[in-house]
Design a binder for these strands. Structure first.
Length: 893
RNA sequence: GGGCGCGUAGCUCAGCGGUAGAGCACUGUCUUGACAUGGCAGGGGUCACAGGUUCAAUCCCUGUCGCGCCCA
């Protein structure tokens, strides 16, 4: 006998290891089953599970478990990401607590006695950290119920994947698709590395717009006014741009200004980049520290003077008094000095977007350095075509437009990072800086020998690759590429990629590039994109806001199934954010309890499946109807999952299990199960058991734990093995006659209940029911369902009568009127009002439909079925209205 | 500035050409031999606003206003 309450904790802890050790998550490339593969978006190896993971992985697991049951050879490829910058940051922070730093340039500046780690020593520490915390996230995914094939777990820095990374780099280099270039990058002065455009987030900052007067050369009292949000960059100004048609400044084009504080002579150029409407209309040009200025500078051959070092402190290119100042201190000093010189025209408050490094959290500095770039434009061509011709689909479809928008305007991808943790770039430099890009040091040496004609000492490039570089290979590197493995042959292209909108560009786009280039095929057939989980107010969850909801806490409190069900229900939202109200998780937990208790009820009533039971042979209407509803639910759920409408699947499950099985089927069949033994009871016990058995299958992808447990408790495990490996139920045929009859029954019972409640008839009072005007079909139905009606509507005795007695409660269903005489006098006024309300509602409906049908355009233009349906509805409503009117008259009689 | 999404019950959200729905909250009632993490019944909505298309618009189109995201 089942306990009264479902205890997720105990069951989850037991079931998961059972599945895993039985190999239930294992894919089998040797099997003849069709492949279905999802590669997990690899979480940071040292991270922990947050709500976004809970959502993303629930959706993946629902799909994987469903396809596994549908008969596919399902592979959910798991693994973790080394997360270069994020992990390095964490380890550095940990080391700082112990007073240890990194032996990088400038590290001893503040504390000469600080212990400094070499690159090798530091990497050892990172690997230690990985070993220590690396199992956290995968353990948490297990708690969620994720059915990944853990026997195939990979890590972006394991041997095989590192091999793939090197090969990709070398091949792309040799194909001219990776190159070294000197250009502006987004420099993070805190992390001391270049970062890609995508790692920059702009924040609205309240700052100022300074209007500086630059004297015109040879005209002591003439000035050109430039407006800037970054006064400190003036140390690097090498020009001024004005719009060619700007009447205010046009006359100065070609002349020179003298840069205050520095004394440099700078040219005034005409360029459409400057907007006469903005600021002063003249723009100071700092090619080395602004992306737009860089372009302007290139157009007009202006010098790019780098005025900062890598810490964003002023360097030796600036006048001595500014050297060594931090960029913000330099700003203060420069503004103060300009003011002293009377060269500040005005200062306006100004809100503008400032680029911040998403990891370091400080403003990034456009910085002129040599970095490695991938030719994203060329690599994007294959993906663009694949998205255009439908080889890859997006759900929702607008993902495709977003994808194009990005891919068609793509910039060179800066792939080098000045970090230690990551894949070190396989490039070696000779004494003359000649670069040799090879898979190994030996090959580089060989190439150098060939080039120089003698052995020379090579120095390896210290930089590592952007983390997203290895992530971009994930769909094929995890399957064994560059080796020709059976996995690669069978599972690539993978079936679907499930991820958030936020990494469409970071990751999805780059996987497309690398997959198309190296495997000549899309990495996945469908990209299923979902929103960002926020708190219930729509605020992004963050530690600083203190509004973080921990999925593990929800699992502890309500169970993994409840969290999963909630996540699945949330998945639909077309909005970019999914607001999570914790009350929903509680509701999902209640749903689990409901199913648990329905099963408990079935068990108590001897529900069992006889050997060789054939549901098609059911004879009782209620059972035929129930089986039809099961088939309907199956079809709805199956269709919804196939179309990635996971929320529809979960609401169909909820409605079916709670609304149909528990609210109606169980209640309607109680008189049978609790009545005398016989064929009806046997059949109902069998159908109850059958429906529950199929139900746990349908629910399993969303709520795997409770369903596996119930499957076992219902006794199916002994015979068929674990639920996770069961085939998905085949849909059965519907029985329209049973449907109609049960529809009538449900309506009758509901109407009686409603009338009783409105008239305040005590819930315990049993009333006699007199049937007036029922035809043969109704009489037959009443006979069939007498016990159910008596029980559910609290009726004691059903009889035919020529007319309703005085002072009875009356309802109309179909062609019959049902009178319920109340022992005590009922409140005639209240009953009259109730009937009048019903009559009015129906009369209004009839009126509305009449107006429609009276409209010649409607009758002639609307489809015939629609018109017919309206007529039908009108007549039904009108007949019921007429009967209720009669009932109202009798009431007063 | 450009692009996109969202404004539906008190709250969180489905629905997206022809009867406005769910969960939570709320009201009344019921310890009925599965379940009070429950049953039964009920109240609550000019589907943001204004035009347009259509026989018919919450749904399609245009604009306005609010909110959010992405890209500059």
């Amino acid at each position: 006998m089942l306990d009264k309450n479902y205890d997720p904790k105990e069951i989850e802890a037991r079931r998961y290891p059972e599945w895993e050790s039985a190999g239930a998550f294992r894919a089998d490339p040797g099997s003849a089953k069709p492949p279905y593969c999802i590669v997990i978006p690899p979480p940071n190896v040292t991270g922990s599970l947050h709500m976004g993971h809970a959502l993303d992985n629930t959706l993946q697991d629902v799909l994987i478990r469903w396809r596994r049951m549908k008969g596919d050879d399902a592979l959910w490829q798991p693994g973790t990401d080394h997360a270069g910058i994020a992990t390095q940051m964490v380890v550095v922070r940990n080391l700082e607590q112990e007073g240890i730093g990194l032996a990088v340039e400038g590290a001893g500046k503040t504390d000469a006695n600080k212990k400094l780690l070499t690159r090798e020593e530091f990497l050892e520490k990172v690997w230690e950290w990985k070993a220590f915390s690396g199992g956290t996230i995968t353990g948490q995914l297990r708690r969620l119920g994720a059915s990944c094939d853990w026997s195939r777990e990979r890590f972006t820095m394991d041997e095989g994947l590192s091999k793939a990374v090197l090969k990709v780099f070398v091949d792309l280099y040799k194909a001219g698709l990776i190159y070294k270039d000197l250009r502006l990058v987004n420099w993070d002065p805190k992390m001391l590395t270049a970062i890609s455009d995508l790692e920059v987030e702009s924040r609205e900052v309240k700052g100022s717009l300074w209007y500086f007067k630059y004297p015109i050369e040879g005209a002591s009292d003439e000035f050109i006014v430039v407006a800037t949000t970054r006064p400190e960059t003036m140390l690097g100004d090498t020009g001024i741009a004005v719009h060619p048609d700007d009447p205010k400044w046009k006359h100065l084009i070609g002349k020179h200004a003298v840069l205050p504080l520095v004394g440099r002579r700078i040219r005034i150029v005409a360029d459409e980049y400057s907007d006469p409407e903005k600021g002063s209309g003249a723009v100071k040009i700092t090619p080395a520290h602004d992306f737009n200025d860089f372009e302007v500078g290139r157009r007009h051959d202006l010098e790019a003077i780098n005025i900062f070092d890598k810490f964003a402190c002023v360097n030796d290119s600036a006048p001595e008094k500014y050297r060594g100042l931090d960029r913000f201190d330099a700003r203060k000093k420069i503004v103060a000095e300009m003011e002293e010189l009377g060269l500040v025209e005005k200062i306006e408050p100004h809100t503008h977007a400032v680029p911040y490094g998403d990891r370091g959290g400080v403003p990034v500095e456009p910085y002129l350095t040599e970095q490695w770039y991938a030719d994203a434009k060329k690599l994007a061509q294959g993906p663009i075509e694949a998205a255009r011709d439908g080889r890859v689909k997006f759900v929702p479809e607008r993902g495709r437009d977003e994808f194009f928008r990005w891919m068609e305007n793509i910039q060179p991808w800066c792939v080098s990072r000045q970090l230690w943790w990551g894949h070190q770039i396989p490039a070696w430099y000779g004494p003359d800086k000649k670069v040799f890009v090879e898979l190994t040091e030996e090959e580089a040496n060989a190439a150098a020998l060939k080039h120089y004609g003698k052995e020379v000492a090579l120095e390896r490039d210290p930089d590592v690759l952007d983390t997203w570089f290895s992530s971009a290979l994930w769909p094929f590197s995890t399957l064994g590429w560059p080796d020709k493995t059976p996995e690669l042959a069978k599972y690539y292209p993978t079936s679907v990629l499930v991820t958030g909108w936020d990494i469409l560009f970071f990751w999805v786009a780059r996987m497309m590039m690398m997959g198309m280039h190296f495997v000549k095929e899309v990495p996945f057939r469908t990209v299923y994109l979902h929103g960002l989980v926020t708190d219930e107010k729509g605020q992004k969850m963050s530690k600083s806001k203190g509004n973080v909801i921990d999925p593990l806490e929800l699992i502890d409190k309500y169970g993994a199934d409840a969290l999963r069900f909630t996540m699945t229900s949330l998945a639909a939202s077309q909005a970019g954010r999914l607001r999570l109200a914790p009350a929903r998780v509680e509701g999902s937990r209640n749903f689990a309890t409901k199913l648990w208790n329905a099963t408990r009820y079935a068990e108590m009533n001897g529900a069992a499946l006889p050997k060789g039971f054939d549901p098609a042979g059911a004879k009782l209407t209620v059972n035929k109807w129930m089986l039809g509803e099961l088939a309907r639910a199956n079809a709805t759920i199956d269709r919804a999952l196939a179309d990635f409408r996971l929320n529809e699947a979960s609401s169909a499950l909820y409605e079916f299990i709670w609304g149909i099985v528990c609210d109606w089927y169980v209640e309607l069949t109680k008189p049978i199960l609790q009545g005398a033994d016989g064929p009806d009871k046997d059949e109902t016990r069998a159908v109850t058991a059958f429906v529950l058995r199929e139900t746990v299958k349908l629910l399993h992808p969303v709520m795997p734990f409770i369903t596996e447990e119930l499957w076992d408790k219902l006794g199916h495990r002994a015979e068929h093995g674990a639920l996770i490996g069961q085939p998905w139920p085949l849909p059965a045929a519907l029985d329209p006659a049973a449907d109609a009859e049960m529809g009538w029954l449900v309506k009758l019972i509901s109407e009686i209940r409603s009338a009783r409640a409105e008239l305040n008839v005590p819930a315990g009072a049993k009333l006699k029911m007199l049937v007036v005007g029922g035809d043969g079909t109704t009489a037959k139905r009443l006979g069939t369902h007498r016990a159910a009606i008596e029980r559910l509507a609290r009726i004691d005795g059903i009889e035919a009568a020529p007319a309703a007695p005085k002072g009875a409660l009356q309802i109309v269903v179909g062609e019959a009127t049902y009178a319920l005489p109340v022992t005590d006098v009922i409140d005639l006024k209240a009953e009259g009002a109730r009937l009048q309300k019903e009559i009015k509602k129906l009369a209004d409906e009839v009126g509305k439909i009449d107006a429609k049908l009276g409209n010649a355009a409607f009758v002639s233009r609307a489809p015939e079925e629609v018109v017919e349906e309206q007529r039908e509805r009108r007549n039904q409503a009108d007949q019921t209205r007429a009967r209720l009117s009669t009932a109202l008259e009798r009431l007063g009689a």
